[in-house]
Design a protein around this nucleic acid. Sequence first.
DNA 1: GTTTTGACACCCG
DNA 2: TCGGGTGCCAAAA
Length: 105
Amino acid sequence: MSQKLRKQIQSGVGTPFQKRVWLELLAIPKGTVWTYAELAKKIGSPKAFRAVGTALGANPYAPDVPCHRVICSDMRVGEYAFGRKQKIALLNSEGVVVSSGRVEK
DNA sequence: GTTTTGACACCCG
DNA sequence: TCGGGTGCCAAAA
């Protein structure tokens, strides 16, 4: 399960804040998309959505970490290290409806 | 220690 | 309804 992945993240190099973001990322259920604001709030800083986005960009464990399940608050897909098209494809593969870079909630 | 960048969010026109 | 500008936090140079 993700236990080994969690151990890898904690054992890996990176700031505690980023690790926290990646751990919370693993808590996202399949077929569900979270917003940067919600994720930031869960880690303890509802206004740190900026730092969250930066943390995901530095995520060396992608796509093992479901960073592609994180979208903007305005239902926008946002960006993805592997490409927005790839992100949309993964979202659709998990049951999330995405149209023209917009996520159907 | 200070400044700039970045996978965003919110407000105003 | 759509577009532009400002504010937020953390990490790296």
